[in-house]
Each structure stands twice: as structure tokens, then as C-alpha cells.
């Protein structure tokens, strides 16, 4: 799941300021943003009324099934014809949806959300920083847990000096290394932790 946060209305209006007289369509996404309540139907409706309160010309709002996976611009218009009447798309999806729309259409594309993390949904809980897409997966040495994303300092060889009583000094959560130690101990894998891991090979898959 791609975790997004709503931008403030001030930041959105600041982006719209140079094109304030153009017709806007608000575009949500029912996948991650819908689930996280940052870009689903209620949020799109709310955004429309906020923009109207600020005298913006909003023609409508739509919610795409998945803004990150689109067959073609033509098929999108066929499904949501109202989009073609807009001059500006204010997109309430993650950055991938925004980038894809920016690439395939001739409308001006503006994001309404910030994309902050690759997360996971566990029942009602949203877990942040589950993967950093570093391009060289080393979680095999940690029974699936990822220190590169779970540790704010991206440590690969153990906790920093700020890991205190098992807690992370940066985020309000358990230090990922405490979690890794517990999991590896429970699975009789502790000796694996003695291995010194080399620096990540960034860019190797691109």
C-alpha cells in the first residue's frame, strides 16, 4: 500500500493560483488513497466543496479504480467522460497516479496529496515504512523484516546508539532492530545476525 497524506488547502491553492480561472476536475483513487481516506469518494466531495468555498471553478469529481494502472487516456475518458471537459486535474492519489496522468493527458495535473511511505494494512492498522525500494533486498538476513526502511537511519548492521530500551529515538515505535532480534531469536536464527552486510547496491535494477 502506498501511504499518502492530504496537503493543506493552502498548499493546494498555492499550486492552483497561477491557473485559478481554469476548470478543475477532482480525481480520486479508490485503491490505497480510498482505503486510507485521503482520496476516496468522501474526500473528493469534501475537496470539491473546499475549492468552491475558495471560488474555484470545479466542474465535477471522479474516483478512479486505480490511478496507477490505466489502460489508456481514451479508455479513461470513455469511463469518466466528465474529465475531458476539465482543464485541470487535481489528483487525490499517490504520486504514481499523479505522474501517470501527467504523462498521458493534455490537462494540467496538480497533486492534492503527499506520498510518504510504502506501508501495509494489518486489519485496521496502517504500518508505515515497510519497504524503501532500495533495489537490493536484504530482508532474507532478517527473516523478512526490513531494517533499511524500518530504521530511520537505514542501518544494515545493527541498531544505532539511539536505540533505547528497545525503542527508536526518532519515531514513536519499537526499534526495528529490537523486533529483528526477537524474531531471529524465536526462529533460532541469531547467528545470521553476526554477518557484516556490505553497502547497498543502489540503481542496479534500473
Amino acid at each position: 500500500m502506498i501511504v499518502t497524506r492530504s496537503k493543506s488547502i493552502e498548499e493546494i491553492l498555492d499550486q492552483l493560483d497561477p491557473i485559478a480561472d481554469l476548470k478543475i476536475c477532482v480525481v480520486g483513487c479508490s485503491l490505497c488513497a480510498g482505503k486510507l481516506k485521503t482520496g476516496g469518494e468522501p474526500e473528493v466531495k469534501n475537496m470539491i466543496s473546499q475549492l468552491q468555498d475558495n471560488r474555484m471553478d470545479v466542474i465535477d469529481g471522479v474516483v478512479l479504480k486505480h490511478a496507477c494502472s490505466i489502460e489508456s487516456w481514451e479508455s479513461l475518458i470513455k469511463e469518466q467522460p466528465v474529465i475531458s471537459d476539465a482543464e485541470v486535474l487535481l489528483v487525490m492519489s499517490c504520486g504514481i497516479g499523479v505522474s501517470l496522468l501527467g504523462r498521458i493527458c493534455d490537462k494540467i495535473v496538480i497533486p492534492a496529496l503527499d506520498t510518504v511511505s510504502l506501508g501495509a494494512a494489518l486489519n485496521d492498522e496502517i504500518l508505515l515504512e515497510m519497504c524503501s525500494m532500495c533495489g537490493q533486498c536484504t530482508v532474507g538476513f532478517f527473516s523478512g523484516l526490513c531494517p533499511k526502511s524500518g530504521c530511520p537511519k537505514s542501518q544494515l548492521n545493527g541498531p544505532c546508539g539511539g536505540s533505547n530500551d528497545g525503542e527508536c529515538e526518532v519515531r514513536e515505535r519499537k526499534c526495528i532492530w529490537t523486533r529483528i532480534y526477537e524474531v531471529m531469536e524465536a526462529k533460532n536464527m541469531l547467528p545470521v545476525l553476526n554477518k557484516i552486510l556490505a553497502p547497498t547496491e543502489y540503481n542496479r535494477g534500473l
Binding site: 530511520p152 537511519k153 542501518q155 546508539g161 557484516i196
Partner: peptide
């Protein structure tokens, strides 16, 4: 050689934290 205190603790909390290597590396 040290990891370093995290960026958000300091006077430039929005700085990009690098941490390309860790202290062992």
C-alpha cells in the same frame, strides 16, 4: 566513525538524511 544523530533532532529537520553507509561499513 558514527551514524550521526537523526536530522529531525536538529535545527534543519527537513534536511534529507543520507545514511548511505552505516558506521560498520
Amino acid at each position: 566513525a558514527m551514524s550521526g544523530d537523526f536530522t529531525t533532532m536538529g535545527d534543519h529537520p527537513y534536511a534529507k538524511p543520507v545514511f548511505d553507509l552505516d558506521s560498520v561499513q
